[in-house]
């Protein structure tokens, strides 16, 4: 059964209305505990076919990565979070990244971005022929509560980009 987004939206709007003042005052954890999390009834499934050595792989993280010099950081203060995503080129280097996500400790990722976004490892495996091709573009989300916009606008946009880039495999790294 697909997710009933209209049902979620009414619960979400109520959650925002009731929690906004508390969230804004900084009592985030208590508000988040009351979040009307969507619980999936079904498990989506696509059987795997092919070989990684002949396919294209892309990374998706929710670590709040963005390119410091050319992209806007995510909104880290809104109760809605930020449902948008940033496109991270394969050529990005460690020093290019900023982290905009207010709900985890960035210390380890700042030491080595591969702990949340192992692009360097994927490129090495591509060079060894274990992975066929590392996609030219990878993606980062950040902290999101607004699943209505996420599912209605941002995820369809992401899927169009992945299909256009002929990505076969996605490695999802939540943070």
């Amino acid at each position: 059964m697909p997710i009933d987004i209209e049902y979620f939206k009414s619960a979400y709007d109520k959650w925002v209305e009731e929690g906004l003042a508390e969230f804004t005052a900084g009592n985030v954890l208590d508000v988040v505990k009351r979040y009307p999390l969507i619980v999936s009834e079904d498990i989506p499934w696509t059987p795997y076919a092919g070989k990684p050595s002949e396919q294209t792989i892309a990374l998706v993280t929710s670590g709040g990565l963005y390119l410091k010099d050319s992209q806007a950081p995510f909104n880290t203060t809104s109760i809605h979070g930020d449902p948008s995503f940033r496109e991270i080129p394969k050529t990005a280097r460690r020093e290019d990244f900023g982290l905009a996500h207010a709900h985890y400790d960035h210390t380890l990722a700042e030491q080595d971005i591969n702990v949340i976004f192992p692009l360097e490892r994927l490129i090495e495996l591509e060079q060894e022929g274990i992975i066929g091709r590392v996609a030219e573009t990878h993606y980062s989300f950040s902290y999101v509560n607004d699943v209505v916009t996420l599912l209605g606008e941002c995820i369809p946009q992401l899927l169009r980009k992945l299909k256009a880039a002929e990505v076969d495999l996605l490695l999802l790294v939540p943070v």
Partner: peptide, 20 residues
Amino acid sequence: GRGSMFGEPGNVERQRRIVM
């Protein structure tokens, strides 16, 4: 823990192992 899904920073072998 949160913020380091691939373990300790700098452990290339561990990170590679998890991708594998």
